[in-house]
Write a protein that binds this DNA or RNA. Structure first.
Lengths: 205, 205
DNA sequence: CTCATGGTGGACTGACTAGTCCAAGATAGT
DNA sequence: ACTATCTTGGACTAGTCAGTCCACCATGAG
């Protein structure tokens, strides 16, 4: 009902986030945003000039509420292999939950828009850099503790960064399998902490 | 011009493959398929009943011409760490080429359709299983040679599978970076072949 | 040479899309 | 209580989408 505005821009972004997360950017019609927010078209366009602006706001909200807390663990100044492993275990737990099939809003957006929508590319590039920096941080501390050398830090950072993107893609097809993958990665990271098991070759059979 | 049919279904699939590869499934209009094939709408729909059928045929062609030769290297009965590393180096070379930005048609399709189009899910699940089996094959042989134990085989298989999906996603935003990632992964795999460097802890500084 | 077969181009359909616009009406300040 | 301001709902526009359909005509058989 008319009068003074009954919602904030942030309300719109949060409600829209759920729909974009579930159905993707192109897959979300403005009508669906109306249903999700309970607002009519004019009210929506009063808050944001374009569907894309709604999406950007939803993505920004997602990053602060979902990405920052998790990745922040690995970005912490005292983060090490423990935190890197815990990060992937946390993902594994999330992948065992009911909402895992939606994947990651940010990585879904990269998959959908990167390379095709030029205005989106910087965000994708920034995020990749951020993840790489986070793992370099954690693995660098491990190297300082003598667990690995510099060459290993950069190689393993590359591998963890690629793996992170990969599990978020895989979780949309098969979340239980992706949960297992995350736990495997966490275990592998943990194994890096050991100076290196010299009995590795014999414990197989 | 009318008369007897001047093209085969396979011609259509191959031409369509290029467009789908470049622009994605939803992003490709039937008009674009007309341009690519040089056929008119009726001729297209004479070869395939639906846009989706064209896509499936294009994807099948992609798998036999692009995926099979590369992944076959790792699936070979005598494949080991050498072949797994060579697989990622081969990817790195491809990522340095001009067409890298399109990514992988199959993985793009998984990213676009998995979880949203139920009829596509089996193909996605099958491919993930296939990749996992391929790396299990190669790493299993390495384990038989004493380079690692069973636990490492399964963990590292998970990691390589996730990494493969990840690099194909990343290559669409930044192909030079993805090429470096592939080479790092190849080097890491190669390092598994060594019984395990006991001087790893000291060579850092 | 003639006719039936069937490939072909292009107009068309109905269902969507994002975004615009305006009349209706509730509120806040006076 | 009155009025100006600004939110609201919903009709509307212009464009795109996948898929259908038909008149046209080149070809192969007899």
């Amino acid at each position: 009902m008319p009068g003074r505005r009954s919602y904030t821009d942030a309300d719109v972004a949060v409600a829209a986030k759920q729909v974009f997360w579930e159905r993707g950017y192109e897959g979300t019609a403005v009508d669906a945003l109306q249903d999700a927010t309970g607002l009519s078209r004019s009210s929506l366009y009063l808050a944001y000039d374009t569907k894309r602006a709604v999406f950007d706001a939803a993505l920004a909200d997602y990053i602060t509420t979902f990405v920052d807390p998790r990745l922040g663990l690995v970005e912490a100044p005292d983060a090490g292999l423990r935190e890197a492993a815990a990060f992937f275990r946390g993902l594994a737990d999330y992948f065992s939950g009911p909402d895992a099939g939606r994947g990651c809003l940010l990585i879904n957006a990269i998959a959908e828009l990167a390379g095709r929508d030029p205005s989106f590319s910087p965000l994708a590039a920034d995020f990749t850099m951020r993840v790489r920096a986070a793992f370099t941080n954690a693995l660098g501390h491990a190297a300082a503790d003598g667990a690995m050398n510099r060459r290993q830090v950069s190689r393993r950072t590359e591998m963890l960064t690629a793996s992170l993107f990969g599990v978020w893609l895989a979780v949309r097809s098969d979340s239980p399998a992706a949960a297992i993958t995350c736990r495997s990665i966490a275990q592998e990271i943990t194994s890096w902490a050991r100076p290196v098991p010299s009995n590795a070759r014999r414990s197989g059979s």
